[in-house]
Design a protein around this nucleic acid. Structure first.
Length: 296
DNA sequence: TACCAGGAGAGCG
DNA sequence: CGCTCTCATGGT
C-alpha cells in the first residue's frame, strides 16, 4: 500500500466542473487531473466516472480532511431532487450532472472572497497565487512537481503591511484583507464558532467586516460552512434569475431576495451553484470554449 | 444618484 | 488594434 495515495468510489461527482467552478481558486489542471493545496498538504486529484484518486507528498494516516473537503460522503440525488421542478433548473442540472459544493477552510474562503470583489475568476486566481507565494508557508511536493505554498495564515497577513499586500495586485482590497486578518488573528472574529450559530447570526458576524457585503458573506457561508440556505447572487446568478424567472418585469431587491430565500428549497445554495455554472457555460462560442480550457 | 478605487482578460467593431 | 465591458464593496 502506498501511504501517499488512495482511491475512493464516487457517484455523480464531476471533479473538473467542481474545482473549476469559481468556488475555489487554487486548483490547476495537470496531466488530466488537478493539483492544489488543502490546508498544509499538496494534493493531486484525478477522477473517472466511478472513482477518484488522490496523491499526496507525505504519508496520510487518515483521509478525512480530503473526504470532508470534497464532501465525498454526500449523496447528490436527494439534493437534486429537492430543486424546484422548473425548466430552468432542469436545464441547469442537465448541463452538468455531478457539480458539487466543496467544504473549504473558513479563513482561506473568507480571504479569497474578500479578494474576489469586482474581479473575474482568472484574476482572483492570480492574486491568490501571488499572495500565497509571498506570505504562505512552503509545503512538501513530490519530486518533479513545481514548488507551491499554503494559503497564508491570518497571522502571516496580519503582520504584513498594506503596501506588501498591494504588491500582490489586490488594489483597494488590501486594507479589507489586512483588517480581516487582524480581526481573526486577534480573536475579534472567531471563525471557528460560526458553525454553531444560526445562518442569520453567522452572516451578521461576517457582514461586520469592511469589504464583506451580502454576496461575499453568502459565499463564505455556503463554501466554507455548508449553510445550504446561503444564496450568493453575483452577476451570473442575477442574469439567471432575470432571464429564467423574471423575463418580463424586473423585480425590486426585496422581492428578489424573498424569491431566492423561499423558491429554491432546502438546498438553495446548491441550486444557485447549478444556475451559476449553467449561465457561465451554456452556448459557448468556440473561442470562449478554448479560452476556458486554457484556464484549466 | 453616480462615480471611483485597481487590474487584466474578454468581447466587439 | 483600440475601445468598452467585466466584477461587487464602500466612500464620496
Amino acid at each position: 500500500m502506498n501511504p501517499c495515495a488512495t482511491t475512493f468510489p464516487i457517484r455523480d461527482y464531476d471533479l473538473d466542473a467542481t474545482v473549476a467552478s469559481g468556488q475555489a481558486f487554487r486548483w490547476s489542471a495537470h496531466r488530466g487531473g488537478w493539483v492544489g493545496v488543502i490546508g498544509r498538504r499538496w494534493v493531486r486529484l484525478k477522477s473517472t466516472d466511478i472513482s477518484l484518486t488522490a496523491q499526496t507528498a507525505e504519508p496520510v494516516p487518515d483521509w478525512r480532511w480530503l473526504t470532508h473537503y470534497l464532501q465525498l460522503e454526500l449523496d447528490l440525488q436527494p439534493v437534486l431532487a429537492s430543486f424546484p421542478p422548473d425548466d430552468a433548473m432542469r436545464s441547469a442540472v442537465q448541463a452538468c450532472q455531478g457539480l458539487r459544493l466543496l467544504r473549504q477552510d473558513p479563513w482561506e474562503c473568507l480571504a479569497s472572497f474578500i479578494l474576489s470583489s469586482t474581479k473575474q475568476i482568472v484574476q482572483i486566481r492570480q492574486i491568490i497565487s501571488h499572495l500565497s507565494e509571498d506570505f504562505g508557508k512552503p509545503v512538501s511536493v513530490p519530486r518533479g512537481h513545481a514548488p507551491i505554498r499554503a494559503f497564508p495564515t491570518p497571522e502571516a497577513l496580519a503582520s504584513a503591511n498594506e503596501a506588501a499586500l498591494r504588491a500582490c495586485k489586490m488594489g483597494f482590497r488590501a486594507p479589507y484583507l489586512l483588517a480581516a486578518a487582524r480581526a481573526v488573528s486577534e480573536g475579534d472574529l472567531r471563525l471557528d464558532v460560526l458553525h454553531q450559530m444560526s445562518v442569520t447570526d453567522a452572516r451578521a458576524q461576517l457582514l461586520k467586516l469592511a469589504g464583506v457585503g451580502p454576496k461575499i458573506a453568502d459565499c463564505v457561508l455556503l463554501f466554507a460552512y455548508g449553510f445550504q440556505s446561503a444564496f450568493p447572487v453575483d452577476v451570473w446568478v442575477m442574469k439567471a434569475l432575470r432571464e429564467l424567472y423574471f423575463p418580463r418585469r424586473r423585480p425590486d431587491k426585496a422581492r428578489l431576495q424573498r424569491f431566492t430565500e423561499t423558491y429554491f428549497g432546502a438546498h438553495a445554495g446548491y441550486a444557485q451553484q447549478y444556475l451559476f455554472h449553467y449561465m457561465r457555460t451554456r452556448r459557448q462560442t468556440p473561442a470562449k470554449a478554448i479560452a476556458l480550457r486554457g484556464v484549466r
